[in-house]
Simulated assay, not measured.
Amino acid sequence: MLSTDTIRAAGAVLWRGEGVVEVAVVHRPRYDDWSLPKGKLDAGETVPAAAVREVLEETGFHSVLGRHVAQVRYSAFGRPKVVDYFGARAVRGAFTPNSECDELRWLPVADAAALVTRREDRDVLAAFALVPADLRTVLLVRHAKAGKRENWPGDDDLRPLSSAGWRQAEALRALLPLFGPARVHAAPRVRCVQTVQGTADDLEVFVPREPRLSEEGYWPDRDAGLVRFLDIVAGDGVPVVSSQGGVIPDLVQKLADLSGLRLADVPCKKGSLWLLAFTHPAPGWSTSDSPAAWPRLVSAHYLPSALPAPRP
């Protein structure tokens, strides 16, 4: 739990290239240092939104967020400061010197690490370099609030979002595009579909129903649910998957166990999001292959809410 006087900030390892990856570092004349792009959250802003905004303001590049790379903590101006860094692929733009940054250099990771001034930035670059920059990102969402089951007189499959749930769904509609989604899937529950329908509408895509990722479809055959999820992972473009609290913790833990990724716990609040990043499957890969050939989970980051945290 962060104290109320903590300075929250966000940034990114902005990267480009295929094969040989280059990352962006910027010179800040105010401090006369070389840094990864980052900055403090504005009022009413989420951490991912701040990362995208700061990258654009400091580098001139629009970006798509990928995995969560690292969180660093240090003291600034006598207060604790926490900075979350994501990988961010540059998609378009150009650098123009500005009041915050007067120079940008695209460098291989090792050269960027040698140039940056702060040890914390070198640590972030080291974490970024541990796995490939170009990973398969999946946005696994638990449906938003839908009131209490005992207060709904009809079929529970048809229980809709509550007013609080609709606020969460609208927040997700603003947050999910930062990660460049292309597809939207949902367990066949009205509340699961409603949670991500706004995102699907914005993308102008249909929401396929995923019975294997509902609670009663998953638990009779967990392996089949896992295989179906990995089929979704292996498709084209970044998928959003909306499921239930009785599925997500077990599914994420199974994926982590298969990949040798250690997770302390797997929370799953309503309206929350797991940002999962996988290695690419081999060409011609199939879920009938040995699990050793399946896409490997290399990063799992939990966002407890798409709503911005209240400011102290």
Rank of each mutant, 00 (worst) to 15 (best):
L130R: 15
D157S: 13
K148L: 08
P181Q: 07
D155Q: 10
D157Y: 10
R159P: 01
R189T: 14
T195S: 13
D123K: 07
T137L: 06
A182R: 15
R122W: 07
V184G: 07
R173H: 14
L139C: 06
D157N: 12
R159T: 01
V193R: 14
L161K: 00
L158Y: 06
A182W: 02
A169Q: 10
Q194A: 08
L178V: 04
P132L: 06
K148C: 02
G147E: 10
L130G: 13
A127I: 07
P160Q: 06
W166R: 15
G180R: 09
L139A: 11
P153D: 03
F179K: 04
R149I: 05
K148H: 07
L140F: 10
A146K: 14
L139D: 13
S162V: 03
W152Y: 15
V131L: 11
V138M: 08
K145S: 15
A127C: 14
L178T: 03
A144Y: 02
Q194F: 03
V138G: 11
D155N: 15
L158F: 12
R142I: 10
A144F: 00
L172K: 03
D134K: 11
L175F: 10
R159Q: 08
R189K: 11
H185K: 06
G154A: 08
D134Y: 02
L176G: 10
R173P: 08
V196C: 02
A187I: 10
H185C: 06
V124W: 14
L125Y: 12
R159S: 01
F179N: 03
P160H: 00
L140D: 11
W152R: 05
L140T: 13
H143Q: 14
R167S: 13
W152Q: 00
K148T: 03
L172C: 04
A129I: 04
Q168W: 05
C192L: 06
L125R: 13
G180C: 05
P160I: 00
G180P: 11
W152M: 02
H143L: 05
R167V: 06
R167W: 05
L172T: 09
D156E: 12
F128G: 09
R142E: 13
C192R: 11
L130V: 12
A144T: 02
P132R: 12
A144K: 00
L178I: 04
R159F: 01
L176C: 05
A126N: 11
R173M: 09
V131Y: 12
P177G: 09
G154H: 10
L161E: 00
D156V: 06
G147R: 08
G165L: 00
G154E: 09
R189Q: 12
A169I: 05
L135I: 01
P188K: 04
P177Y: 07
R189H: 12
L130H: 13
L178Y: 09
R149V: 09
D156F: 04
D123N: 10
R183D: 02
L125M: 08
D155A: 08
R159L: 01
N151W: 04
W152A: 03
W166Q: 14
R159G: 01
D155F: 05
A146C: 11
L135P: 01
Q168I: 08
A169E: 11
L140W: 09
A133K: 13
T195V: 02
Q168S: 08
P132A: 04
F179E: 13
V190G: 05
T195W: 00
A187T: 10
L130W: 04
R149A: 12
V190D: 12
D155W: 08
F128H: 11
L158D: 15
A169G: 14
A146M: 04
A133C: 11
S162F: 02
